[in-house]
Every structure is written in structure tokens, then in C-alpha cells.
Simulated assay, not measured.
Amino acid sequence: MGGSQSSRKLTVDNENAIQVSQEALDRIQAQLNANQAQQAVSPPPPPPTQFVPSEYFESDKRKKEHAAEEVYWARRIENLKRAHEKINASMDVEYQKTLKEANELFNMAQNDKIASKLPPCQDEKAKVLECYSTNPNKTLLCSVLVNKFNDCVCRSRVAAVSAS
């Protein structure tokens, strides 16, 4: 029962289910040929144009509103230009002021370098070195000169700190 497949076959002969007359076939073929010929000959359609309303449709009220907006934005732009000019002027003043201060500081540093090129207490240093070279094994004999050199160095340090 149901375990085997059915061996029956069904065939339908439907060759002439829809009958079309030769006249209808000719009309359809002629229409297709005409459409193909028209597509081959006719240029492509122009791109869509943007609608621009004529002045006739624009009311006086709308024209006045447009003019008022133009005046508003013109004033706004001028105010912004003036504000930017003020900002630029103040920035230029600050730039010049900072440049002047930087140049003054640079000149002061250059002057300090020139003044401090030679180390202080050169005479005392030379005397100490001479004493050490003449008394190589008796360095305590040079202690007085070393103390004078030390005092000179301390004075120059104090002078440098108080100057700055």
C-alpha cells in the first residue's frame, strides 16, 4: 500500500490551446519593427530641465523678503570683516611686542656671554699653579695662595648671583 510508485503516465496535447490569426501576428511584428526603428533613429531624450519660476509668479512680498535678507547678510558680513580686522590688528600688536621682548632678552644674554667669557680670578689661578709647579712635594706651602683663590671665586659667585 503506498510503498511502490505509481506507474501511470499522463500526457496532455495542447498545441492549439490559443489560436492567433495571421493578421494579429503581422500587426505585432510590424509594431515591434517600428519601435526598433524609432529607437535606432531618434536621439536620446534631453535631460530634465530645472523649473525656474517666472517673475510673474513671484509676489512683491517675496521680493521684499529677499531684499531684506540680502541687506541683513551684507551687514553681517561687514560686521564680521570688521571684527576680524580688529582681531588681526591686536594680534599684530601682540606679535610685535613679543618680538621686541624676545630681542631684548637675546641681547641681554649675548652681553652676559661676552662679559663672562673670561673666567674670574685668572691671576690667582696662575699664582696657585706656579706655586704647585715650583713646590711639587710641598703643597702646604701654597695654602695661602689657594685660600686667596677660593675667596676670589666666592666673591665672583656672589656677584653673579646678585647681578641676575
Rank of each mutant, 00 (worst) to 15 (best):
P47D: 01
S54Q: 07
S42M: 13
E58Y: 07
A34I: 04
P45Q: 02
F57T: 05
P46N: 03
Q31H: 15
S59K: 04
L32E: 03
T49F: 10
S54N: 08
A40Q: 09
V41C: 00
V52C: 02
A30Q: 15
V41P: 02
A40M: 08
Y56F: 15
F57N: 09
S54M: 07
N33S: 10
P53I: 09
V52T: 03
P44G: 07
A37H: 06
P46R: 01
P53E: 04
S42N: 12
T49E: 04
P45C: 08
V52E: 08
A30W: 13
P43D: 07
A37S: 03
Q36E: 03
P47V: 09
N33L: 12
A30E: 14
L32Q: 08
Q50T: 13
S59T: 15
T49V: 10
V41M: 09
A30S: 14
S42P: 09
P43T: 09
P45V: 02
P47T: 05
V52A: 09
F51N: 08
Q39L: 14
P47G: 03
Q38T: 09
S54I: 07
N35H: 04
A34H: 05
N33E: 15
F57A: 13
Q36A: 11
N33H: 00
S54R: 02
N35P: 00
A30R: 14
P44H: 00
Q39I: 10
Q38M: 08
L32H: 10
S42K: 14
A37T: 04
V41S: 13
S59Y: 01
V52H: 02
P47H: 08
S59R: 03
A34K: 04
P43G: 01
S59A: 09
A40E: 12
F51I: 07
F51C: 08
F57Q: 15
P43K: 01
S59Q: 10
S54C: 06
S42R: 12
P45Y: 05
Q38H: 06
